[in-house]
Design a protein around this nucleic acid. Structure first.
Length: 1066
RNA sequence: GCGCGAGUAGCUUAGUCGGCUGGAGCACCCGGCUGAUAACCGGGAGGUCGCAGGUUCAAGUCCUGCCUCGCGCACCA
């Protein structure tokens, strides 16, 4: 035999070949971490990222917009997932020839930053912050923002997320803020910005209102007094009963809401109750009104019904205020009357909702709608305002429950009190109950542009589409005005100034405008943050008086919503930059951004530019732990991406994330899955590469100059498969099915290339001479590896590049996306069949108790397509001496008629079972004859050739099996099970060789090393001379002895024979 | 309460227009192959396709209801 494998000393001696430009270099065992970190250095030295972008500067732009993360939190595995999907699309598009710039970004404002600083400096209230000093506080915030920047940069670089981190956009930069101001001014001038109230969960201790997210952190179950209050109607003796769990809101009561279609009942108390808990009560003869459904639950007295009435009958009736003087009527016509509201239900309470405008969202909206007075009875510190009631003024509202109950009891207005258990939001920092409290706020009138939002949304290509139509669409259809201001310190200041005299409002749209409008002697803010802007006094364009800034900062979502233009400092920055990059082609973030960034981008672009902002949006599913639980710090189930970067590497981590499921489905992140991906995909790919590179290096193979050789059917097959994979990958990338594309590639690499093509080609490369066959194999392997590395480069950029560089001499990231070529479907089908037959052969051997190494003299293929070009492969796989075609089917098989249910079902419908039974009972041979003659009728239906399939079933007693192919045809394999002395000898020789090779491996012998071999056989078949020589050649036994009789050393048994063998190095 | 999504072997999953014996991988057991491989091949065991109805000749697939999980929205007067 020829040369074996080029490992060990042999391959070192040829390292001089590495000098060839494109001749592949031999490779080592895979160390993915070293491979990746080493490559990172190369990339940075060669500026591969910059070059990959600039090389396509003439190409059509593909515009990507990076959603800015906050760097005051540690990056986690979910960030790696998002960045993988961002990166892979950008890399793929770049390879397709698009010009894909990627500017990084940082979100740097907002409450989370403030909270971090507050915690660290123990500044748990607004007073504390102001005592500490706003300027100093904001400086702390500004620094805190970058706490984890280094960690982010390391993660970003290590995972190979290519993105310009050196010139990112940063929301705290004055240029960015200025663009935001400009945008807000556009809204202001379109009359889309206004000032109003918003009811928010508010903590008077910290002086902070909370987002719903933070509220969710602090729900606690509490037991509190709830009260039923009698509201005395003015035009009758009756009272309406209303219920509340927040007695402190009662002084603010200005209305009672009823459901217009709800049935109410008016009852008269007829006698005292039998027992009574707590305060309250009613006189005999007193009349009460409440929902009919709740009457039994609420009323504790014996009563008689006076009348039944609908809510609409009550609407407009006036009642006496509980706390006269606490609220001024002003010009309200509806104050202290019954109002209708369709959201009123009879699930609890009395079916009448006590309405305090400033302390409930529904209350506030209703109050605005019908014109109730919007006045506070509680100050910003949570204490009752002066003038509410002498017993309450100045006291913290939550301490007043008992007092209020007593006051109402004393005036006879309390019907009942009842302890009530419910979940109520508490401040997650101080543990105090939150108050729903109407806060002064600025709004963007999103309701005015709802139709445009919906229209633009329909133009966005969403992946998956149901997020766009469903979740996001639903959000837009229910769009509310955007409360855009926050009573905070660290953020983009709201650029609205109000005249202290005439109340004229002015929105500043640039630094220049700020300077031009500054009042004489006023400082002009140099830094656009608080407190500096607060000090800038403008001169009122209407009356020349001083204007003061509204003391708010903006919702930090507004900042990131401006990213598409503020990143370019539009309209003050480089001309054309924005226009050429808007709207963007692609954004990608977690699905939690639906109401966040996905929304604010569209909200801003709609209100400012009357345009969509992004054309395609990939919404990623949540990342869960391996058990499907949400990852959270408290559960301790956070996965640190570095665990994997440092073990399996970033390639495997990224590939796992992409192939584990559809990007929009929740990803159960399983560390074992990464391990599996590494072992299966990357080790295999690496070893294919190693196999090729080692021989190519040894042979001085050069893809450009080495002769092409002669393609074998095996080569043709794998190249057809390759083209198939290229086409499928492309189509699936286009349709966002990255997971399917990558699973397809992985299957190709592992199954087709490694486990079949390379396995079947191994001996082709052992040929020392530059045979046609070897050359073709090398060109084919080269083509496969280069193409595959390009296909996987967007997802796993490291190994792809190492392979590509070794084979092509240049980075894969500068290469073009592969184009597919012709696919020979026939050869693919044929090879599929060959592989199936090889597996079938092994099954036959198991069934017939014949070991694989013992050859069979003959195998027959019965029917099926022409596989003659693969007969050599098949013979080797099956370990048979010859393969023949058998035409005489009847020798091994009989034909059996099988129903085609699809065809028969359409024809026979409900009679199908009868027909099926008829076919099952019938004699196949005669049925076939009848079909041929066109006269087979079963259960009244004529059965034609389309209605059946003919399956071949092997006759009893043959070592054979039949496989059905998808088109209904069948192929059978028959093996000759007879033994001859020649076959027994060959089989035994193979068994011995196998054992000796294992022993060689155990001894760690180099391939070319010779051995001394001794073999003893007992009760064994005779070993022929040719087989003895074969053993000697295969095992490189320059000194071999074969003896009959009992021996010593290692032994094994095979088919009743015992073999001893001894192997030693020479 | 409303909306969206999911539920297939111990785990991860494929399953197209309703049709033929519901496929893979991991892990387990038996056997085999193997000097690129941490792989591979054959066999075994493991499935009430969440539950219950319905449509149909035929349902993992379509319809209805319910259960569980996740996400979002609303509510918590």
């Amino acid at each position: 035999m020829g040369r074996v494998s080029p490992k060990g000393a042999g391959f070192k001696s040829c390292s001089h070949l590495a000098g060839f430009m494109v001749a592949p270099k031999p490779t080592d065992e895979l160390d993915s971490v070293a491979l990746e970190t080493g490559l990172l250095k190369t990339w940075s030295e060669e500026e591969v990222f910059e070059n990959s972008v600039q090389n396509r500067a003439d190409g059509e732009p593909f515009i990507f917009l990076e959603g800015p993360p906050t760097a005051n939190g540690k990056p986690g595995i979910h960030h790696v997932v998002a960045r993988t999907f961002k990166d892979l699309v950008c890399r793929w598009k770049t390879m397709e020839g698009y010009f894909v710039e990627r500017k990084g970004g940082w979100d740097t404002h907002g409450l989370p930053v403030e909270i971090e600083v507050q915690k660290r400096l123990d500044l748990m209230s607004n007073e504390a912050i102001e005592a500490f000093g706003m300027e100093e506080f904001n400086k702390e915030c500004r620094d805190s923002v970058w706490t984890y920047e280094a960690a982010w940069r390391e993660m970003t670089e290590r995972m190979a997320y290519w993105c310009d981190l050196d010139e990112p956009y940063v929301t705290l930069h004055d240029n960015y803020i200025e663009s935001g101001w400009w945008a807000l001014k556009q809204m202001f001038e379109k009359d889309l910005l206004y000032r109003g109230y918003k009811v928010l969960p508010y903590c008077p201790q910290t002086g902070t209102s909370y987002s719903s997210h933070e509220v969710a952190l602090g729900y606690k179950e509490v037991e509190e007094p709830s009260v039923y209050i009698k509201f005395k109607l003015e035009d009758s003796d009756a009272s309406i009963l209303a219920w509340t769990t927040t007695p402190w809101t009662l002084p603010g009561n200005v209305g009672l809401a009823v459901g217009p279609d709800v049935e109410y009942i008016r009852v008269r108390v007829t006698s005292e109750p039998e027992n009574w808990d707590g305060h309250g009560g009613a006189e005999i003869g007193e009349e009460l009104i409440l929902a009919k459904d709740l009457f039994k639950e609420v009323i504790r007295h014996h009563c008689e019904e006076v009348e039944t009435l609908l809510g609409s009958d009550l609407v407009g009736r006036s009642y006496e205020p509980l706390f006269p003087g606490a609220i001024e009527r002003g010009d309200s016509k509806t104050a202290w009357t019954v109002i209708e509201a369709d959201w009123v239900t009879t699930t609890d309470g009395t079916g009448v909702v006590h309405t305090a405008v400033m302390y409930g969202e529904d209350d506030y909206n209703l109050g605005m709608e019908v014109g109730l007075p919007a006045q506070h009875t509680v100050d910003i510190n949570g204490a009752f305002l002066k003038g509410t009631h002498p017993a309450l003024d100045g006291r913290y509202v939550k301490d007043c429950d008992a007092t209020i109950i007593e006051l109402l009891h004393d005036t006879g207005l309390l019907y009942r009190e009842k302890m009530y258990t419910h979940d109520y939001p508490h401040c997650w920092r101080t543990g105090h109950p939150l108050l729903y409290y109407a806060m002064d706020s600025w709004f963007v009138r999103m309701t005015a542009v709802k139709d445009r939002l919906l229209e633009f949304n329909s133009q966005v290509e969403w992946a998956p589409d149901w997020v766009g139509e469903g979740r996001f669409g639903e959000w837009l259809r229910n769009v509310k005005d955007w409360a855009i201001s926050r009573e905070r310190y660290w953020g983009t200041p709201l650029p609205v100034w109000i005249c202290t005299k005439c109340e004229h409002q002015h929105c500043v749209g640039s630094r220049e405008e700020l300077a031009a409008m500054a009042a004489e002697g006023s400082p002009v803010a140099d830094d656009l943050h608080r407190p500096f802007v607060d000090d800038t006094i403008l001169s009122c364009p209407e009356c020349n008086s001083d204007m003061k800034r509204e003391p708010f900062v903006m919702d930090c979502w507004f900042d990131s919503g401006c990213a598409s233009f503020a990143q370019w400092h539009h309209p003050f920055g480089e001309e054309g930059k924005f226009e050429n990059n808007f709207p963007v082609d692609y954004i990608c973030e977690g699905v939690d951004q639906t109401r966040g960034w996905f929304y604010t981008l569209l909200a801003v672009s709609t209100t400012v530019f009357d345009s969509i902002c992004y054309k395609r949006c990939l919404s990623l599913g949540l990342i869960l732990d391996a058990e499907g639980k949400k990852m959270s710090k408290s559960k301790g189930n956070i996965v640190d991406p570095w665990d994997h970067f440092n073990r399996e590497g970033a390639d495997a981590t990224r590939w796992y994330m992409v192939t584990a499921g559809a990007p929009w489905n929740p990803l159960k992140f399983d560390p074992n899955g990464v391990r599996e991906t590494y072992g299966k995909m990357f080790l295999t790919l690496w070893n294919i590469h190693r196999f090729h590179a080692d021989y190519a290096a040894l042979d001085g193979f050069d893809p450009d100059t080495s002769p092409k050789g002669k393609e074998t059917p095996l080569d043709k097959w794998i190249l057809s498969r390759l083209n198939q994979v290229i086409a499928a990958t492309h189509a699936q990338f286009e349709s966002w099915d990255f997971h399917k594309a990558c699973r397809g590639i992985e299957d190709f690499i592992v199954n087709d290339v490694s486990n079949w093509y390379v396995r079947r080609s191994r001996r082709r490369l052992w040929d020392e001479a530059a045979s046609e066959d070897k050359l073709s194999c090398q060109h084919t392997l080269h083509k496969i590896l280069v193409t595959v590395s390009r296909l996987i480069a967007p997802v796993s950029p490291f190994m792809a590049d190492v392979i590509h560089r070794n084979l092509e001499g240049e980075s894969v990231h500068l290469a073009n996306w592969p184009e597919d070529g012709t696919v020979d479907e026939g050869i693919i089908e044929a090879m599929g069949l060959v592989r199936e037959l090889a597996e079938t052969g092994r099954r036959i051997r198991v069934d017939n108790d014949r070991r694989q190494r013992l050859p069979c003299s003959e195998g027959w293929i019965v029917s099926g397509p022409d596989l003659s070009s693969f007969h050599d492969i098949l013979a080797e796989e099956l370990n048979v001496e010859t393969i023949s075609l058998e035409k005489d089917l009847d020798r091994f098989q009989s034909e059996v008629v099988h129903p085609n249910r699809r065809s028969l079902g359409a024809k026979c419908r409900q009679d199908l079972p009868a027909v099926l039974a008829g076919i099952a009972d019938g004699d196949s041979e005669s049925m076939l004859a009848s079909i041929e003659a066109g006269n087979l009728v079963i259960a009244g239906y004529e059965i034609t050739a389309e209605d059946i399939e003919i399956r071949r079933v092997e006759r009893v007693g043959f070592a054979a099996e039949t496989i059905q192919s998808s088109d209904g045809s069948s192929v059978s394999l028959v093996l000759d099970m007879s033994d001859t002395p020649e076959l027994l000898s060959k089989g035994l020789a193979r068994d011995i060789t196998r054992r000796v090779q294992a022993a060689r491996k155990d001894l760690n012998l180099a391939i070319e090393e010779q051995i001394k071999l001794e073999v003893w056989t007992k009760d064994a078949p005779e070993l022929f001379e040719s087989d003895l020589q074969w053993i000697i050649d295969e095992t490189r036994a320059s000194n071999a002895e074969f003896l009959v009789g009992e021996g010593s050393g290692e032994s094994f048994e095979v088919d009743g024979a015992t073999v001893w063998y001894s192997v030693s190095a020479l």
